[in-house]
């Protein structure tokens, strides 16, 4: 035959999804929550998001090109996802230089120091966030007032998050029924009219994003469902035992970073388990640690720490939790 033909082992067909497409679906799924932030926090949301994404992509490019001396892979979209998620975890009045530090830690330490995409044990955006929380506790815990701060950035009027109000109040011995009057109502909590990190406020929008990810099979349901169910049940038991000393489970699901964490942060590919059973253990672990930190810990919010702690267990889960092989347990009848 005159023409050369390709000879390669099977399979000869390939699925359409690639890394880039998956990452762009994640970005798309984050858009509803981003819009909610823009509606409630206005200009601050735009500045924080833009700076964070540009910084994460830029740092990844520079590190790959000049430090690692490899071909930059920023076009795969994973740095942009990290940038977006980091922004989602920051207050919208945070100064630009702090965002830059966060981005450098997220990309440089959280991702590239381990060899880049797929090799990092900890969620890069959360590494950045927790680093900032420990280094700049004041700036990281002053939250702009929704709606009124739309046109303000660094000078925004600030206030505590609903979680902080409840935690403080309970430790001062004020009954929960009284405290509930000081925080937004459930409808506001559901649509996102509250103090909080940029992307964590819009429960409804985050759930829509989660449905997009599930429908496109970007993630599976195991991790979000196990986290949410655990938090719901655990806080439900505490609430049932003493409703005046504990907030109800719906409140716990709607506030803080629970939905953002369960749907977008804990499901990060590289840092979550590979098998459904592993995912369940991981999700239940995150749920329990979150509640423990919220109720008994020093911080009002615990999702970030909980995810990072469970990230550390992922290698062990992958090593010891195996899928049930086909034909392993033969119960034929």
């Amino acid at each position: 035959m005159s023409k050369l033909i390709t000879v390669s082992p099977s399979p000869h067909m390939h699925g359409k999804d690639n890394v880039k497409k998956l990452m762009y679906w994640v970005i798309l799924a984050l858009l509803p929550a981003f819009l909610v932030s823009v509606i409630f926090f206005g200009i601050g949301a735009l500045i924080v998001t833009a700076v964070s994404i540009v910084a994460c992509v830029g740092f990844e490019y520079l590190i790959q090109k000049y430090l690692m001396k490899v071909k930059p892979t920023i076009s795969d979209g994973s740095a942009a996802v990290t940038g977006l998620l980091l922004a989602f975890n920051l207050p919208t009045n945070i100064p630009v230089w702090i965002i830059l530090i966060g981005a450098l830690v997220a990309i440089g330490v959280g991702k590239m120091s381990f060899g880049g995409l797929g090799n990092n044990p900890f969620n890069p955006a959360l590494v950045g966030r927790v680093f900032l929380l420990i280094s700049f506790p004041v700036q990281m815990t002053s939250w702009p007032e929704p709606v009124v701060s739309r046109t303000q950035y660094a000078d925004a009027v600030t206030g505590p998050t609903p979680l902080a109000i409840i935690k403080e109040g309970i430790s001062d011995g004020i009954p929960v029924s009284e405290l509930m009057g000081q925080i937004p109502g459930y409808f506001d909590l559901f649509i996102g009219r509250m103090h909080g990190s940029m992307g964590e406020i819009g429960a409804l929008a985050l759930i829509i994003g989660g449905i997009i990810l599930l429908a496109r099979k970007v993630i599976t349901w195991h991790i979000p469902v196990s986290i949410l169910a655990t938090i719901f049940v655990f806080t439900g038991i505490l609430w049932g035992a003493n409703p005046e000393a504990n907030a109800d489970p719906i409140f716990h699901i709607l506030t803080g970073g629970v939905l953002l964490g369960a749907i977008f942060m804990a499901t990060d590919y590289a840092t979550s388990p590979m098998t459904p059973k592993g995912m369940w253990i991981y999700g239940i672990g995150i749920g329990i640690i979150t509640v423990v930190i919220r109720i008994w810990g020093a911080y009002p919010e615990g999702v970030s720490f909980a995810i990072l702690i469970m990230n550390a267990f992922v290698p062990i889960l992958n090593k010891y939790i195996k899928p049930k092989r086909f034909g392993e347990e033969v119960q034929n009848g």
Binding site: V19, L22, T73, D76, S78, G115, G116, L117, G118, N119, T220, Y269, A270, S272, P273, M274, T275
Partner: peptide, 8 residues
């Protein structure tokens, strides 16, 4: 090919 992103 790219790195394994551990997507499971």
């Amino acid at each position: 090919v790219q790195n394994c992103i551990r997507c499971a």
